[in-house]
Design a protein around this nucleic acid. Structure first.
Lengths: 148, 148
DNA sequence: TCGATATTGATAATCGTTGTCAATAGAAAA
DNA sequence: TTTTCTATTGACAACGATTATCAATATCGA
Protein backbone atom coordinates (compact mmCIF):
# COMPACT_ATOMS: atom_id res chain seq x y z
CA UNK A 1 0.00 0.00 0.00
CA UNK A 2 1.27 3.43 -0.92
CA UNK A 3 0.50 6.53 1.08
CA UNK A 4 -1.06 8.88 -1.43
CA UNK A 5 -0.45 12.61 -1.27
CA UNK A 6 -3.63 14.62 -0.91
CA UNK A 7 -4.69 15.96 -4.29
CA UNK A 8 -5.22 19.56 -3.16
CA UNK A 9 -1.58 19.84 -2.25
CA UNK A 10 -0.42 18.50 -5.63
CA UNK A 11 -2.80 20.85 -7.39
CA UNK A 12 -1.36 23.84 -5.56
CA UNK A 13 2.22 22.87 -6.35
CA UNK A 14 1.31 22.33 -10.01
CA UNK A 15 -0.32 25.74 -10.11
CA UNK A 16 2.75 27.37 -8.64
CA UNK A 17 4.81 25.65 -11.31
CA UNK A 18 2.46 26.71 -14.11
CA UNK A 19 2.71 30.29 -12.96
CA UNK A 20 6.46 30.37 -13.27
CA UNK A 21 7.28 29.77 -9.63
CA UNK A 22 9.71 27.09 -8.60
CA UNK A 23 8.62 24.23 -6.44
CA UNK A 24 11.04 24.12 -3.56
CA UNK A 25 11.37 22.26 -0.30
CA UNK A 26 10.31 25.19 1.87
CA UNK A 27 7.28 25.85 -0.34
CA UNK A 28 6.26 22.21 -0.26
CA UNK A 29 6.24 22.26 3.52
CA UNK A 30 4.10 25.38 3.70
CA UNK A 31 1.67 24.13 1.10
CA UNK A 32 1.36 20.81 2.85
CA UNK A 33 0.35 22.48 6.09
CA UNK A 34 -2.09 25.04 4.79
CA UNK A 35 -3.74 22.82 2.19
CA UNK A 36 -4.51 20.08 4.67
CA UNK A 37 -5.82 22.04 7.61
CA UNK A 38 -9.43 22.78 8.37
CA UNK A 39 -8.67 25.67 10.60
CA UNK A 40 -7.38 29.15 9.96
CA UNK A 41 -3.65 29.42 10.65
CA UNK A 42 -1.64 32.58 11.04
CA UNK A 43 1.85 32.90 9.57
CA UNK A 44 3.61 31.91 12.76
CA UNK A 45 1.42 28.86 13.27
CA UNK A 46 2.14 27.79 9.71
CA UNK A 47 5.83 28.32 10.40
CA UNK A 48 5.82 26.14 13.48
CA UNK A 49 3.95 23.31 11.78
CA UNK A 50 5.81 23.42 8.48
CA UNK A 51 9.14 23.55 10.25
CA UNK A 52 8.54 20.03 11.50
CA UNK A 53 8.67 18.91 7.88
CA UNK A 54 11.44 21.23 6.78
CA UNK A 55 13.51 22.27 9.81
CA UNK A 56 15.63 24.86 8.01
CA UNK A 57 12.50 26.81 7.09
CA UNK A 58 12.59 30.54 7.81
CA UNK A 59 9.61 32.56 8.96
CA UNK A 60 10.15 35.03 6.16
CA UNK A 61 9.68 32.29 3.59
CA UNK A 62 6.33 31.47 5.13
CA UNK A 63 5.18 35.06 4.66
CA UNK A 64 6.36 35.08 1.07
CA UNK A 65 4.75 31.75 0.23
CA UNK A 66 1.43 32.71 1.78
CA UNK A 67 1.56 35.90 -0.26
CA UNK A 68 1.89 33.92 -3.47
CA UNK A 69 -0.78 31.41 -2.56
CA UNK A 70 -3.16 34.27 -1.83
CA UNK A 71 -2.33 35.97 -5.13
CA UNK A 72 -3.13 32.73 -6.95
CA UNK A 73 -6.46 32.57 -5.14
CA UNK A 74 -5.58 29.32 -3.37
CA UNK A 75 -5.94 30.65 0.15
CA UNK A 76 -7.89 33.49 1.68
CA UNK A 77 -7.57 35.62 4.76
CA UNK A 78 -10.04 35.05 7.56
CA UNK A 79 -11.19 37.80 9.87
CA UNK A 80 -11.91 36.79 13.42
CA UNK A 81 -12.47 38.62 16.70
CA UNK A 82 -8.98 37.68 17.79
CA UNK A 83 -6.77 38.29 14.82
CA UNK A 84 -7.28 39.00 11.15
CA UNK A 85 -4.19 37.42 9.71
CA UNK A 86 -5.05 33.75 9.50
CA UNK A 87 -5.48 31.85 6.26
CA UNK A 88 -7.67 29.07 4.96
CA UNK A 89 -7.81 27.16 1.68
CA UNK A 90 -10.04 29.34 -0.49
CA UNK A 91 -13.68 28.45 -1.02
CA UNK A 92 -14.87 27.18 -4.36
CA UNK A 93 -17.00 30.01 -5.71
CA UNK A 94 -18.67 32.42 -3.35
CA UNK A 95 -19.22 30.87 0.02
CA UNK A 96 -19.50 31.91 3.62
CA UNK A 97 -17.68 30.79 6.69
CA UNK A 98 -18.82 28.87 9.72
CA UNK A 99 -16.21 28.84 12.45
CA UNK A 100 -16.14 26.73 15.59
CA UNK A 101 -15.28 28.79 18.65
CA UNK A 102 -14.14 25.63 20.40
CA UNK A 103 -11.69 23.87 18.12
CA UNK A 104 -11.27 26.51 15.46
CA UNK A 105 -12.58 24.24 12.75
CA UNK A 106 -13.77 26.10 9.66
CA UNK A 107 -16.44 25.09 7.16
CA UNK A 108 -17.83 26.82 4.15
CA UNK A 109 -21.49 26.98 3.30
CA UNK A 110 -23.37 28.68 0.52
CA UNK A 111 -25.92 31.22 1.58
CA UNK A 112 -27.55 32.24 -1.66
CA UNK A 113 -30.62 33.26 0.30
CA UNK A 114 -29.04 36.60 1.07
CA UNK A 115 -30.26 38.06 -2.21
CA UNK A 116 -33.64 39.01 -0.76
CA UNK A 117 -32.13 40.70 2.24
CA UNK A 118 -29.58 42.53 0.14
CA UNK A 119 -32.26 43.68 -2.27
CA UNK A 120 -34.31 45.09 0.57
CA UNK A 121 -31.37 46.94 2.08
CA UNK A 122 -30.40 48.31 -1.32
CA UNK A 123 -33.90 49.60 -1.90
CA UNK A 124 -34.16 51.10 1.55
CA UNK A 125 -30.78 52.83 1.61
CA UNK A 126 -30.18 53.68 -2.03
CA UNK A 127 -26.85 51.89 -1.92
CA UNK A 128 -25.64 49.80 -4.83
CA UNK A 129 -24.39 46.75 -2.98
CA UNK A 130 -21.39 45.07 -4.53
CA UNK A 131 -20.05 42.69 -1.96
CA UNK A 132 -20.92 41.11 1.34
CA UNK A 133 -19.28 39.32 4.21
CA UNK A 134 -21.15 36.77 6.26
CA UNK A 135 -19.58 34.68 8.95
CA UNK A 136 -21.18 32.50 11.57
CA UNK A 137 -19.54 31.53 14.84
CA UNK A 138 -20.58 28.67 17.07
CA UNK A 139 -19.78 25.23 18.36
CA UNK A 140 -19.39 22.18 16.15
CA UNK A 141 -21.00 18.87 17.06
CA UNK A 142 -17.85 17.53 18.69
CA UNK A 143 -17.26 20.65 20.79
CA UNK A 144 -20.91 20.78 21.87
CA UNK A 145 -20.61 17.25 23.17
CA UNK A 146 -17.20 17.74 24.76
CA UNK A 147 -17.41 21.22 26.25
CA UNK A 148 -20.76 20.34 27.89
CA UNK B 1 -27.52 82.16 18.04
CA UNK B 2 -25.48 79.65 19.99
CA UNK B 3 -23.65 76.79 18.36
CA UNK B 4 -24.90 73.73 20.22
CA UNK B 5 -22.62 70.80 20.92
CA UNK B 6 -23.88 67.55 19.40
CA UNK B 7 -25.63 65.51 22.10
CA UNK B 8 -23.76 62.24 21.38
CA UNK B 9 -20.53 63.88 22.34
CA UNK B 10 -21.94 65.25 25.60
CA UNK B 11 -23.41 61.86 26.39
CA UNK B 12 -20.05 60.16 25.93
CA UNK B 13 -18.26 62.67 28.14
CA UNK B 14 -20.92 62.30 30.81
CA UNK B 15 -20.56 58.55 30.67
CA UNK B 16 -16.81 58.79 31.07
CA UNK B 17 -17.39 61.01 34.09
CA UNK B 18 -19.96 58.64 35.61
CA UNK B 19 -17.54 55.77 35.28
CA UNK B 20 -14.88 57.50 37.29
CA UNK B 21 -12.81 58.79 34.40
CA UNK B 22 -11.78 62.39 34.19
CA UNK B 23 -12.94 64.59 31.37
CA UNK B 24 -9.79 66.16 29.98
CA UNK B 25 -8.86 68.28 27.01
CA UNK B 26 -7.23 65.44 25.09
CA UNK B 27 -10.22 63.17 25.69
CA UNK B 28 -12.65 65.84 24.60
CA UNK B 29 -10.82 66.18 21.30
CA UNK B 30 -10.85 62.43 20.63
CA UNK B 31 -14.49 62.07 21.58
CA UNK B 32 -15.45 65.00 19.40
CA UNK B 33 -13.85 63.38 16.36
CA UNK B 34 -15.08 59.83 16.76
CA UNK B 35 -18.58 60.69 17.93
CA UNK B 36 -19.26 62.96 15.00
CA UNK B 37 -17.88 60.94 12.12
CA UNK B 38 -19.87 58.62 9.90
CA UNK B 39 -16.87 56.71 8.75
CA UNK B 40 -14.56 54.25 10.42
CA UNK B 41 -11.35 55.91 11.58
CA UNK B 42 -8.17 54.19 12.68
CA UNK B 43 -6.14 55.46 15.65
CA UNK B 44 -3.79 57.50 13.52
CA UNK B 45 -6.61 59.13 11.58
CA UNK B 46 -8.27 60.04 14.87
CA UNK B 47 -4.97 61.44 16.06
CA UNK B 48 -4.53 63.66 13.02
CA UNK B 49 -8.07 65.01 13.19
CA UNK B 50 -8.23 65.48 16.95
CA UNK B 51 -4.85 67.18 16.97
CA UNK B 52 -6.38 70.06 15.07
CA UNK B 53 -8.52 70.72 18.12
CA UNK B 54 -5.92 69.94 20.72
CA UNK B 55 -2.43 70.37 19.21
CA UNK B 56 -0.50 68.95 22.17
CA UNK B 57 -2.34 65.63 21.80
CA UNK B 58 -0.15 62.53 21.82
CA UNK B 59 -0.85 59.43 19.74
CA UNK B 60 -0.63 57.23 22.81
CA UNK B 61 -3.48 59.12 24.41
CA UNK B 62 -5.62 58.39 21.38
CA UNK B 63 -5.02 54.66 21.82
CA UNK B 64 -5.83 54.86 25.49
CA UNK B 65 -8.99 56.86 24.96
CA UNK B 66 -10.26 54.57 22.21
CA UNK B 67 -9.63 51.65 24.53
CA UNK B 68 -11.85 53.21 27.19
CA UNK B 69 -14.59 54.17 24.77
CA UNK B 70 -14.66 50.61 23.47
CA UNK B 71 -14.79 49.20 26.99
CA UNK B 72 -17.79 51.43 27.71
CA UNK B 73 -19.48 50.13 24.56
CA UNK B 74 -19.52 53.56 22.92
CA UNK B 75 -17.48 52.60 19.88
CA UNK B 76 -16.82 49.35 18.07
CA UNK B 77 -14.10 48.00 15.85
CA UNK B 78 -14.85 47.60 12.17
CA UNK B 79 -13.25 44.93 10.02
CA UNK B 80 -12.59 45.89 6.43
CA UNK B 81 -10.57 44.41 3.57
CA UNK B 82 -7.94 47.05 4.11
CA UNK B 83 -7.42 47.28 7.83
CA UNK B 84 -9.18 45.92 10.87
CA UNK B 85 -8.40 48.62 13.39
CA UNK B 86 -10.87 51.35 12.61
CA UNK B 87 -13.64 52.44 14.94
CA UNK B 88 -17.21 53.64 14.65
CA UNK B 89 -19.79 54.86 17.15
CA UNK B 90 -21.42 51.65 18.34
CA UNK B 91 -24.76 50.55 16.97
CA UNK B 92 -27.85 50.61 19.14
CA UNK B 93 -28.62 46.96 19.75
CA UNK B 94 -27.56 44.32 17.27
CA UNK B 95 -27.13 45.81 13.83
CA UNK B 96 -25.13 45.18 10.72
CA UNK B 97 -22.90 47.45 8.72
CA UNK B 98 -23.25 48.89 5.27
CA UNK B 99 -20.06 50.55 4.07
CA UNK B 100 -19.56 52.78 1.07
CA UNK B 101 -16.50 51.78 -0.93
CA UNK B 102 -16.34 55.26 -2.36
CA UNK B 103 -16.46 57.71 0.53
CA UNK B 104 -16.13 55.29 3.41
CA UNK B 105 -19.46 56.29 4.86
CA UNK B 106 -20.90 53.76 7.27
CA UNK B 107 -24.53 53.01 8.06
CA UNK B 108 -26.14 50.48 10.30
CA UNK B 109 -29.15 48.42 9.37
CA UNK B 110 -31.03 45.70 11.18
CA UNK B 111 -31.19 42.35 9.45
CA UNK B 112 -33.37 40.28 11.70
CA UNK B 113 -34.24 38.14 8.71
CA UNK B 114 -31.08 36.13 9.20
CA UNK B 115 -32.76 33.85 11.69
CA UNK B 116 -34.14 31.60 8.97
CA UNK B 117 -30.81 31.27 7.24
CA UNK B 118 -28.98 30.63 10.49
CA UNK B 119 -31.52 28.01 11.49
CA UNK B 120 -31.05 26.18 8.21
CA UNK B 121 -27.28 26.20 8.48
CA UNK B 122 -27.43 25.03 12.09
CA UNK B 123 -29.68 22.13 11.11
CA UNK B 124 -27.55 21.20 8.15
CA UNK B 125 -24.18 21.33 9.88
CA UNK B 126 -24.99 20.39 13.46
CA UNK B 127 -23.35 23.57 14.71
CA UNK B 128 -24.82 25.55 17.56
CA UNK B 129 -24.53 29.04 16.16
CA UNK B 130 -23.85 31.75 18.71
CA UNK B 131 -22.83 34.80 16.78
CA UNK B 132 -22.72 36.20 13.29
CA UNK B 133 -21.06 38.92 11.31
CA UNK B 134 -22.73 40.49 8.31
CA UNK B 135 -21.34 43.41 6.40
CA UNK B 136 -22.38 44.84 3.07
CA UNK B 137 -20.12 46.87 0.83
CA UNK B 138 -21.22 49.10 -2.00
CA UNK B 139 -21.69 52.62 -3.23
CA UNK B 140 -23.89 55.18 -1.55
CA UNK B 141 -26.24 57.37 -3.55
CA UNK B 142 -23.80 60.26 -3.71
CA UNK B 143 -20.89 58.10 -4.84
CA UNK B 144 -23.03 56.35 -7.45
CA UNK B 145 -23.86 59.70 -8.94
CA UNK B 146 -20.37 61.14 -8.68
CA UNK B 147 -18.14 58.20 -9.60
CA UNK B 148 -20.28 57.56 -12.70
C1' DT C 1 25.96 18.30 -16.12
C1' DC C 2 25.85 23.08 -16.33
C1' DG C 3 24.43 27.76 -15.69
C1' DA C 4 21.14 31.52 -15.26
C1' DT C 5 18.44 33.11 -11.85
C1' DA C 6 14.52 32.49 -8.63
C1' DT C 7 14.54 31.48 -3.95
C1' DT C 8 16.35 31.13 0.58
C1' DG C 9 17.59 32.30 5.51
C1' DA C 10 19.91 35.62 8.42
C1' DT C 11 19.88 40.19 9.52
C1' DA C 12 18.30 44.73 9.72
C1' DA C 13 14.65 48.02 9.13
C1' DT C 14 10.02 49.41 9.64
C1' DC C 15 5.30 49.89 11.27
C1' DG C 16 1.69 49.78 14.63
C1' DT C 17 0.86 49.16 19.36
C1' DT C 18 1.89 48.85 24.32
C1' DG C 19 4.79 49.75 28.62
C1' DT C 20 7.37 53.22 31.67
C1' DC C 21 7.76 57.37 34.20
C1' DA C 22 8.21 62.08 35.69
C1' DA C 23 5.42 66.19 34.93
C1' DT C 24 0.79 67.94 34.61
C1' DA C 25 -3.94 68.93 35.29
C1' DG C 26 -8.84 67.50 36.89
C1' DA C 27 -11.91 67.68 40.54
C1' DA C 28 -13.12 66.97 45.32
C1' DA C 29 -12.25 68.90 49.80
C1' DA C 30 -10.79 72.66 52.67
C1' DT D 1 -10.44 80.21 46.02
C1' DT D 2 -6.83 77.42 47.23
C1' DT D 3 -5.07 73.05 48.31
C1' DT D 4 -4.33 68.29 47.74
C1' DC D 5 -4.63 63.79 45.86
C1' DT D 6 -4.05 61.15 42.04
C1' DA D 7 -5.69 60.04 37.28
C1' DT D 8 -3.92 61.39 33.10
C1' DT D 9 -0.60 63.06 29.94
C1' DG D 10 3.24 63.12 26.44
C1' DA D 11 7.94 61.75 25.48
C1' DC D 12 10.50 57.88 25.18
C1' DA D 13 11.61 53.15 25.06
C1' DA D 14 10.22 48.46 24.21
C1' DC D 15 7.84 45.14 21.83
C1' DG D 16 5.72 42.03 18.22
C1' DA D 17 4.49 41.43 13.56
C1' DT D 18 5.69 42.29 8.93
C1' DT D 19 8.72 43.83 5.15
C1' DA D 20 13.26 45.04 2.88
C1' DT D 21 18.18 43.73 1.93
C1' DC D 22 21.69 40.68 0.33
C1' DA D 23 25.01 37.07 -0.23
C1' DA D 24 24.61 32.03 -0.50
C1' DT D 25 21.92 28.29 -2.36
C1' DA D 26 18.95 25.31 -5.05
C1' DT D 27 15.75 24.72 -9.01
C1' DC D 28 15.07 23.51 -13.56
C1' DG D 29 15.63 24.33 -18.49
C1' DA D 30 19.30 23.90 -21.82
Amino acid sequence: MTTSTPPIQEHWLALLQENGYRVTGPRRSVVEIVANHHRALNPYQVFELARQRYPRLGLVTVYRTLEKLEALGLIERVHQPHGCHAYLPAAVGHQHLLLCQGCGNAEYFSGDDLDDLIGRIAARTGYQIKEHWLQLFGLCTACRAGAQ
